[in-house]
Design a protein around this nucleic acid. Structure first.
Lengths: 253, 253
DNA sequence: ACCGTTTCTCAGGGAATTCACAGGTTCCGG
DNA sequence: CCGGAACCTGTGAATTCCCTGAGAAACGGT
């Protein structure tokens, strides 16, 4: 089930209308903090654990709808934790966090069961999107919840990563896609460059804030090219996306 | 939840109708004084602390709905304070104060959790607006509280930064926007130039007091242009905004 | 290892914004 | 009716903010 908040944000809820529950398992406190804050902001209920034993204990009591699990824990191997979690919660989807260079094939086998994974360092947009997908597919949330975002004649499919404007398909790179998704999940709201950077770029990105300007520029070229612009600059405040006003011909209203 | 006071000011309240509670943490006494006064004027309950230890102690007892936290504290790093605060108050939104040139410095990830920050030197209008936004979105206040201010046929959307009069969209610069917001949050009330300067301009602004006159002039050009004026001068006292009276045709009353 | 794609830095240019200054206008008391 | 105080606003310059081209570096697939 999804509802739309007064601010226009779309929220994911459980079938009974209560908030989604997510368990975060990672030994780096700053990371669990970062994740907890971001996921809480999605309107979800979060609990966290720093090791495998704690994870299993918390899972038993908390009964989460999804688990974020770092594969590198101090006390036991990620696979062992996974096994015990599965005994507690057979059907819960798990989002694995792995180091970039970790053996991909091992993970690949694990994700066959409807689980998913992201590599560190990740962007919050990516984690949230993957988690939303997992929860949606696991059926904890209402089945009707859609994976397509739409603003005006612009659509973005979170599953297929397809983007269209006025019916025309548009090819975006990974970063462009995440930026657009973030904008489209917050239509008609000004998002500052700092917010965008925090959300769309990896948490360890230490570069110049003007990459945001650059990628906005890229997006405009692909999305607004020769059309009524949808991406707007609020000088000194940030950027926002909104449906283009009807063009003058139809603007009789 | 929002209610409208007898003076016409719109106040933010907690779900149970009690005043919002805010904790201010900064080591510069003059700044905590300034902030406390301004925030109290919003009708909020304020408590302040001058260092990290005090902040955590006060937070435990006071249970604020939001925290204003200087990143530069004498006894510990801002992030360390944040961590301990989070342990006490997992869901409380935090507004960080940071130096202008230290922006790049570890702000990463902070705005993504629904927190926010402003750079020193700030304007009180900015701090109050951000704080209102945080509290609104954190759900301490009723979710239905709106982000749109309206006076007569003039509207100002704090999320999209959109301003309209009689349906026509009006473009304002950042300073014009903040000035208008301040006026509109205090309709039918005379605001002195000193008040406006203190509120809308950064606290270290050292310029001529007649910038206020200048910006009022700008606003009039954009908002009152060719229409029934809404911005009025009270000579020797200040300025005020109010709904335009019905135009002569309908002015039988 | 090679080549196309993607990400990002850097820097120049351009435009919007802020602000000081100063001359003009309005208001008011005497 | 005069003079001063308060206010209004045109002009222009400095600054800040944003956009975007060019190219280096990193990445990914074959």
């Amino acid at each position: 089930m999804t509802t739309t908040s007064p601010q226009g944000r779309t929220e994911l809820l459980r079938a009974d209308g209560s908030p989604v529950r997510v368990l975060v398992v990672d030994d780096e406190v700053s990371l669990t903090e970062l994740l907890s804050m971001a996921l809480r902001y999605e309107g979800w209920q979060i609990r966290s654990a720093g090791d495998g034993v704690g994870a299993v204990r918390t899972a038993r009591a908390f009964r989460p709808d999804a688990v974020v699990l770092d594969m590198m824990l101090p006390d036991m191997d990620g696979l062992a934790v996974l096994g015990r979690l599965r005994r507690e919660l057979p059907d819960v989807p798990v989002l694995f966090l792995t180091a970039k260079d970790a053996v991909e094939d091992r993970i690949a086998g694990l994700t066959a069961g409807g689980d998913d994974y992201v590599t560190k360092p990740f962007s919050l947009e990516e984690v949230v999107a993957r988690l939303r997908g997992l929860i949606r597919r696991a059926g904890a949330a209402d089945r009707r919840s859609e994976s397509v975002l739409a603003v005006g004649d612009l659509t973005l499919d979170e599953d297929s990563h397809e983007v269209t404007r006025g019916g025309d398909s548009i090819h975006l790179t990974a970063t462009e896609f995440e930026l657009l998704r973030y904008l489209m999940r917050n239509p008609r709201r000004v998002l500052s460059k700092a917010q965008i950077l925090d959300r769309v770029w990896n948490y360890d990105f230490g570069g110049q804030a003007n990459v945001v300007e650059l990628y906005i520029s890229y997006l405009r070229r692909k999305i607004d090219a020769g059309r009524e612009p949808m991406i707007h600059t609020r000088r000194g405040a940030g950027y926002l996306i909104k449906a283009a006003p009807a063009t003058e011909a139809a603007a009789a209203s």
